[in-house]
């Protein structure tokens, strides 16, 4: 099936909505890969809860993108029918699950950004964006509380868990600057009071994360090579494989009703 979602129907606002949708969609997919692999059964239900929340949020954003441009079809056509070059999620969200420290570090770094961004979007001039953000934020508050506790627990747990968590943070730090990069189109939306202003979010994010790292006895990497591209649809190689799996059944039966 050809990917017809590249060019049609995406004004800059829709691109932004897809970015907001793809973050939880892609992270939710990574989390559901962990099903039956959790370190303890209690954590199995918790990871699945987070994944469920994120898929629900992704669906709300995608539905809005479709409502603005009905020729896009429906939320499944967008989630299952787009090629990797047309996904606009942050690189952080697509990183592999690794060990439990990698999973929780990724979750925490994203959760803080996600919460701050949604908080800003609650005040968006676009009332639908504000409504979806307000609905999502309670869930994300809880995600952050949980992932923060795990970062601290593992950071200040045993020597082994400390080392795992420190190396997880070191690895993932390469994707931190991308959280705050905004192109001209997005900056225009910021100026209109529609999109979140990432420069003020960056200040809060760095302060919050630093405080947690200190509590977790972890150190923040300095002078870390930074990677960009997710928001322009330039992703990692494993991301394509993740999508291939996610989209395989949908694409094998074009037009089928499930």
């Amino acid at each position: 099936m050809s990917d017809c979602y590249a060019t049609q129907g995406h004004d800059s606002l829709n691109q932004y909505i897809l970015h907001l949708a793809d973050n939880p969609l892609v992270l939710g997919q990574r989390l559901c890969e962990l099903c039956t692999h959790a370190p303890i059964l209690e954590e199995e239900t918790a990871l699945m809860n987070t994944s469920l929340d994120l898929f629900g949020q992704a669906r709300n954003w995608l539905d809005y993108a479709v409502a603005r441009n009905p020729q896009l079809g429906d939320c499944d056509a967008l989630a299952m029918g787009r090629d990797e070059r047309h996904f606009l999620n942050l690189l952080l969200c697509e990183q592999g699950n690794g060990n439990f420290a990698d999973t929780m570090a990724r979750q925490y770094l994203f959760d803080v950004w996600h919460r701050l961004t949604l908080q800003a979007l609650c005040l968006s001039q676009d009332s639908q964006i504000a409504a979806i953000a307000a609905k999502s934020i309670k869930e994300v508050d809880y995600h952050e509380q949980r992932s923060r506790n795990w970062v601290i627990r593992l950071g200040d747990g045993t020597q082994q868990s400390h080392d795992y968590m420190q190396s997880a943070i070191n690895e993932l730090w390469s994707y931190s600057d991308e959280l705050f990069v905004q192109g001209d189109d997005e900056l225009q939306l910021v100026a209109q009071g529609i999109a979140a202003n990432q420069s003020s979010i960056e200040v809060q994010w760095r302060a919050t994360v630093s405080q947690t790292m200190a509590e977790a006895t972890l150190t923040l990497p300095t002078d870390c090579f930074q990677k960009f591209g997710g928001k322009q649809g330039e992703h990692s190689e494993p991301f394509g494989l993740m999508l291939a799996e996610m989209q395989s059944l949908y694409r094998a039966h074009p037009g089928a009703v499930w």
Binding site: E33, L52, F55, A58, R59, S248, A256
Partner: peptide, 17 residues
Amino acid sequence: TRAPTLKRKLQLAAKIQ
């Protein structure tokens, strides 16, 4: 990971949970 729609994915995840 392969559920064909988001609705089915949500249902299945809730059930497994």
